[in-house]
Write a protein that binds this DNA or RNA. Structure first.
Lengths: 120, 120
DNA sequence: TAGGATACTATCAAAAAGGGAAGTAATGAC
DNA sequence: GTCATTACTTCCCTTTTTGATAGTATCCTA
């Protein structure tokens, strides 16, 4: 999750696919390793940076920051900074962010079925 | 898409997340760069290796093979080899594979909305 | 005046994903 | 006997993502 190289074949491929295939586009946006997990927690209401970190004990601060920035860029969360010391920053889903709940639910259902199937 | 290192922190994190979060589990399975695109084409019926390749002009044979193998491992597609020369191999979605259609549709709808939003 | 709280940022390294090009096996057509 | 066809496999390299660790700023408290 750093800068992307706009000359790589990989970049081109991603762009092309996302252009002609809305589901690929969507999965590119919510497909980061922690993205969905973060959204899951935010769906129950806004959370501070530190609270999210507690929800995801294994995430590093760097990763959490990167993912939140990406979500913010993609207008899926809003970031509100309170001018206090120590600082307080709250993250909340936007309307499009909340609209992910259907997808999340479907993924959950499908995931359950699939997991069951793989066990047998 | 090569071997994964079962000792890496990354591997551990993925495992943990997938265990406690079915939507993360699901997105890990269908989240490859070409996975959803492949499923999209297969949803209309079985296709041969070469036909898939034509559907995705930019994919390399290597990648297509890897993705299909992963899909097969995850019981999302079946692979049927016909003992002919030149060889013929057909790929078809399994029932769970077909059940992805809901998710694909959701992603498509959400993607459309999101894309619209980002333009404004 | 040293330490704590919070939300980061910076730097370096490792792992994972993806790409390019060439090679393989079997057989029928020419 | 050479070529074409098909579905791969191999090897090596680049790009992208993720992890580990160590800072930074500000003010309040003890």
């Amino acid at each position: 999750m750093t800068k992307i190289k706009e000359t790589s074949t990989n970049f081109e491929n991603k762009k092309l696919l996302a252009e002609e295939c809305l589901e690929v586009y969507a999965s590119g946006i919510i497909g980061g390793q922690w993205t969905l997990a973060i959204c899951c927690y935010l769906i129950n209401g806004k959370l501070r940076f530190g609270e999210l970190k507690k929800c995801l004990p294994a995430i590093t601060e760097r990763m959490l920051t990167l993912q939140l920035r990406k979500l913010e860029e993609n207008k899926i969360v809003t970031r509100t900074v309170f001018a206090e010391v120590p600082p307080r920053v709250e993250y909340e889903l936007t309307p499009v962010g909340y609209q992910l709940s259907t997808i999340i639910k479907n993924l959950e259902d499908w995931g359950r079925k699939h997991k069951q199937l793989m066990k047998s």
